[in-house]
Design a protein around this nucleic acid. Structure first.
Length: 486
RNA sequence: GCGCCGAUGGUCUAGUGGUAUGACCCAGGCCUUCCAAGCCUGUGACCCGGGUUCGAAUCCCGGUCGGCGCACCA
């Protein structure tokens, strides 16, 4: 294991970001809890994400059940896809899909075991049922998306039958991974933040705000090339590397969001799925991948063109037609007798793995450096995601400094700035404590404060200090709670 | 899921068939006019279950968790 990954996960555990779940009972693989600082970090990321899509894109957020009834997943393909029988080779332990192999192991020719179910969805039952009626079967959702698809008729009416529109959802999803590893990279319970953009198929080629992102430069790895290329979204769409403006637009927005919360662009690329790698519902898919020092390239966001797969499937299964009548417009030369056609909207889906993004932020913001012969660990988190926004510190643990510091501390919290107060030990020790959890600013109350009501603000990254008057503090510190969607 | 290896305070560790070492952290106190200084005091651990044994944290078996390899990851 690389030293840095050990260090960053040790820090995350010790300082209350991420803890193994059920630890006192020995834990369970693939489950993690967020501690006080991890929860604060996660909430900030989620809030910024919501703002990015609601204020930024005009999408509404909904909240649907985490448990889904059987027909949903029959229609979505998740049941069929994961009810596949798997067989195992008795000699080399290879695992294969039963429908892909014959009698013998394709690797070593060994004998294969009988078929077993390997369903990645957690199954449960609704109500007090004594039999195995399929009607009562329910599954924890493997993605939040289905809740947005099955509500499509309501959502369409809510939007007064106008397309396109986007819907977002943030919530837990569940996959019963066979063998989760790599800490919070592969979890059995995790948080997804997903946007489903419903758009008529013939409108995908033009996005009304494409010009806003057209000059965004991205690092792309198309599935038909062995090399990566770096180019603008506009160029990529024109050259058909990215198939249409809608996909390109949302890929660019994904990159902008990740950059704004602190993912270094140098460690980010978009990789197009191979044809045989694509999910069963996807027509096309580009993963935003983060280059982890520990795990290599890790998918943190998937941007998929799901086509009309889901709405078509639910329409058939539920016998609820979700196609849209499209009347022939003057601009589109349609044959006279073609009265009105009916089409299913297509879905463009940016799907963010919040836990992986948190890992990426921790790993990439973690720095270990030497200051005066001592090790300084510092999380260079962006100010607007730092769990503790400001620390208020009396220079010495002595009156009247402590009292004055408490006043400043209370004043900042009244201004909605989340501050921590710390008077223990030496001032240097307290600065280091805050560095380690990424607190961007430390306010120090010293003897000069008592004379003229000024304090020093210490910058985490440069360790430099400036003196400002107490009355200016809220304005000077407002960057810790500013929005980023604009 | 399979194979190999591992598991000692919050963290990192020493160690032995007779209940455990040190450091750091943390808490309280003293000191301290800006970057983990110093001094005093204190809290705190042998992953879980079974077996062998007078006695198991140590040996054996099983489990859990973790690392690595294989497989899996819609």
């Amino acid at each position: 294991m690389s030293k840095k990954e050990e260090d960053v996960m040790e820090l995350a555990r010790r300082r209350g970001f991420i803890w193994a779940a059920f630890e006192i009972y020995g834990g369970a693989s693939g489950f993690f809890d967020y501690g006080p600082l991890g929860t604060a970090l996660k909430k900030k990321i989620e809030t910024l994400w919501r703002e990015f899509y609601t204020l930024g894109e005009g999408f509404y957020e909904i909240e649907t059940t985490t448990l889904g009834i059987r027909p949903i997943f029959e229609a979505s393909g998740h049941l069929e896809c994961f009810m596949d029988k798997m067989v195992e080779c008795k000699s080399c332990r290879g695992l294969f899909r039963a429908d892909h192999v014959g009698e013998r192991c394709p690797d070593c020719g060994g004998e294969l075991s009988g078929p077993q179910d390997f369903n990645l969805m957690f199954k449960t039952r609704i109500g007090a049922v004594s039999d195995d009626k399929a009607r009562s079967e329910a599954f924890l959702r493997p993605e939040t998306a289905q809740g947005m698809f099955v509500n499509f008729p309501r959502l369409l009416r809510f939007h007064r039958n106008k397309l396109p529109f986007g819907i977002i959802q943030v919530g837990r999803a569940y996959r019963n991974e066979i063998s989760p590893r790599q800490g919070i990279i592969r979890l059995r319970e995790f948080t997804l933040a997903e946007a489903e953009v419903f758009v008529l198929p013939h409108e995908k080629s033009k996005h009304p705000r494409f010009h806003e992102v057209e000059s965004v430069t991205m690092r792309l790895k198309p599935n038909y090339m062995d090399e990566e290329l770096e180019t603008t979204v506009k160029d990529a769409v024109e050259r058909k590397i990215i198939t249409h403006e809608y996909l390109g637009y949302h890929m660019a927005r994904v990159q902008q969001f990740l950059e704004k919360i602190g993912i270094p662009l140098a460690k980010l690329r978009f990789r197009q799925h191979e044809r045989d790698e694509m999910a069963h519902y996807a027509e096309d898919c580009w993963d935003a991948e983060f280059l982890s020092e520990r795990f290599g390239w890790v998918e943190i966001v998937g941007v998929a063109d799901r086509g009309d797969y889901d709405l078509r499937a639910h329409s058939l299964k539920a016998k609820a037609d979700m196609s849209i009548p499209v009347t022939a417009s003057k601009s589109e030369k349609m044959e006279e007798e073609s009265r009105s056609l009916s089409v299913f909207p297509h879905v463009i889906e940016p799907s963010y793995g919040i836990d992986r993004i948190i890992y990426a932020l921790l790993e990439s913001s973690f720095h270990k450096e030497e200051v005066r012969g001592e090790v300084r660990r510092v999380l260079r988190l962006k100010t607007h995601v730092a769990p503790v926004e400001v620390a208020v510190l009396p220079l010495l643990n002595r009156e009247p400094l402590v009292n004055k510091a408490r006043e400043v501390f209370q004043m900042l919290r009244r201004h909605r700035i989340f501050a921590e107060f710390d008077a223990s030990g030496s001032i240097g020790r307290r600065y280091r404590r805050q560095d380690e959890i990424g607190t961007p600013f430390c306010i120090t109350i010293d003897y000069e404060t008592l004379e003229n009501d000024t304090v020093t603000i210490r910058d985490r990254d440069s360790m430099k200090q400036v003196r400002v008057s107490i009355s200016e503090l809220p304005a000077k510190l407002s960057c810790v709670c500013e929005s980023i969607f604009a």
